[in-house]
């Protein structure tokens, strides 16, 4: 067991209840060059600090949600359901 996350549907659980989807990154909207595609597929900001990231409640409701977590302390500042296309975290 380590830190806790609060699934917006199910409540607070141990991190082992969840799957990690990585930092939120924007999927290119127009056809990217090979280099831009590589950047999107492989490069990560990997910030030391607050990161918006995807989590999946694998052991519970099996829904994806978004967390803001400080990667230096693992403190989870907020969790929320994605708001869909057009929202800041949308990768579409």
């Amino acid at each position: 067991m380590s830190f806790l996350l609060t699934c917006p549907n199910c409540g607070t659980r141990e991190v082992t209840d969840f799957g990690f989807g990585g930092e939120i990154s924007a999927r290119p909207t127009a056809r990217p060059s090979l280099r831009e595609l590589g950047e999107y597929n492989y490069f990560r900001r990997n910030v030391a600090g607050v990161q918006r990231e995807w989590w999946f409640h694998r052991s519970g409701c099996r829904a994806w949600f978004i967390a803001e977590r400080d990667t230096v302390t693992n403190e989870v500042l907020l969790t929320e359901l994605p708001r869909g296309p057009g929202s800041p975290e949308s990768v579409a």
Binding site: G19, W54, F56, W64, G84, P85, V91
Partner: peptide, 20 residues
Amino acid sequence: VEEWFSWWLADWQMDVRLTD
């Protein structure tokens, strides 16, 4: 695959429901 489908669905928010 279930996770993959539901991940994109969470992002695209389409009129689609998945049941495993």
